[in-house]
Design a protein around this nucleic acid. Structure first.
Lengths: 181, 181, 181, 181
DNA sequence: TATGAATGAGCTTTCATTCAT
DNA sequence: CATGAATGAAAGCTCATTCAT
């Protein structure tokens, strides 16, 4: 009943496969949306369907894995003392596709909250610094910053590839007065 | 010889069916997202699958029909001289779900541009009025207003039913300084 | 997304299809057991997968449809005044495959009880007649007759096609003294 | 370089693993039927998939291994001079699940015949004793006893856990007159 | 020799679309 | 012109089996 056309590279291929799947998912989800066939992810990763399901029992866990990588990058940037809120916001904006994709399919999933918490915790010290040092006013809360990020993410996601940078800038320009008040 | 469970009411039923389909689509798309089975729309409308396809050859045209109704309402409000930008923006915000749904599936469809144009034309005079009369500053373009609407729509869409009003307010508060500058 | 290689014979094909599916199911389930792929049933019936699912939303309902036909035949025989318990038992024995198949997969399904009730009700008057007229003694209850039928069905089902009649006879011979006591 | 989550205990673990697999199979097959995933058997046995395949190249051989244990117990009981047919029959009835499961999947497999032969040989002397000593009449052959056992096994298998004893008794009551004639 | 990840065929199920009535 | 059953491609998921380690 089973087949074997591709050589079984053995268990050692596991981590490699996992990484390939996440990378493939990032590409496929980016191009075709989070509803893209999982089989296309497996195919692009050069991995059997079964392996995909072993690593990620459902679609959401794959989406989260993609986002988790984004988040780790954000946290790394946030932990470097010289990174500014602005830079962080830009980084987040650029990783926005994942965010939006995630939101689209994971609405209501508990894990989404975890991710939001991580983002919040990564931003909090930077935001306080910025407010303390007068870079921005004290008028806007962290909640508002989070909302602003979601708003920028939304418009960036729907912009065409080439326009994204311009659109993001315009969106931040529109929000800055509100955040800096 | 065969039975027809529902009487064939003939050509006169056409417009009625069309309206029923759009109404059903609004409900179904609202509840289950724009990817909901078209058959469920037909069933809720009390209409055969074939009729659905006669009126709306593809999913997108049905989505546009829903949004077209929203837009007509917006245009009607815009044409009343006493409606303010703020009221218009609120109306748009409330019809936001349709907008976001639409964006999700129609990205890149030419008709989306038409709709955007109609929205722009409905808003333009009100926006100019507001700027002329000093209600807002002259700093923000109509383009920026459009972008602001898209941003509010995005966050409102992902908010839970009960939070929507609050979220919309918060989002506008964040944007107001930027728009009024 | 959909295809069309076989002409769509229209709704009028519905009842025909249903019948073809039940007939095919009888064959397939008989040969390969009740766990046989439903797709093979559809293929043998010359019907699309979708039609199978329209008529029988799950495997059990298809199994029941097969058995329902058996049961109707049994009831018809039971309602003829001249049919004897013995003849009825033989008929049931011959339709045994369906019964066993059914039992295998429907264990615990509510519909199984209905079928058992129908069988019981079809047999009751005949059994009483037989007891009243002295054909059998009064020692065995209807419950015991039902159990006896299940026992014969079981051995007949596992016998090879050619042996069935012989096996059924031997089984009834073994049970007769107990039932007639 | 890689980790081995469970220590490879080497060749000496062979027999132990085999026993664990049979024990696990008995449990799993009993709970989920003989079609249960083999992987679940391996997991319950605390053994890798590969080991399962080393010991039992296919599902049927695992099923036979389970039944073989049952049979050995029956033979042991049969070889004790004081065991009666009745006790033997009861023992067999209690091990009936395995039998039925076995029949379901091994129909037609040569090994089934071997098992039947062993059962027959275990029963033969007891049956002859019983007939010689007048405990039962001489009317029923060993073949008929075998058939009776199969019939009881069938009804017992489909009874709910709690009813089994009662059902088995009722079935034997129904058969006793035929066997003792 | 044991482990357990990898593989992919195959089954189930859904739904867009067609078309006889 | 409306109806709704039929169709089948496609996607999800499972699990028997293999094989590198």
């Amino acid at each position: 009943m089973a087949g074997q056309s591709k050589t079984n590279r053995g268990p050692s291929a596991g981590p490699e496969n996992r990484a390939a799947l996440v990378a493939a998912a990032r590409v496929i989800f980016g191009q075709n949306g989070v509803d893209a066939p999982l089989s296309s992810v497996a195919k692009l990763a050069g991995v059997g369907q079964g392996s995909l399901y072993r690593h990620f029992p459902d679609r959401v866990s794959l989406v989260f894995a993609v986002f988790d990588e984004n988040m780790s990058e954000i946290e790394a940037a946030a932990s470097r003392p010289d990174t500014t809120v602005r830079e962080l916001a830009d980084l987040i904006t650029h990783q926005t596709e994942g965010i939006a994709a995630l939101i689209g399919i994971t609405d209501g999933d508990a894990r989404l909250g975890d991710l939001e918490t991580r983002l919040r915790e990564a931003l909090a010290p930077k935001w306080e610094d910025a407010q303390r040092s007068g870079v921005v006013g004290n008028g806007a809360s962290l909640d508002e910053l989070m909302m602003a990020i979601a708003m920028v993410a939304a418009v960036v996601t729907h912009a065409s590839e080439g326009d994204r940078h311009k659109v993001a800038s315009a969106a931040w320009d529109l929000l800055r007065p509100g955040l800096s008040r």
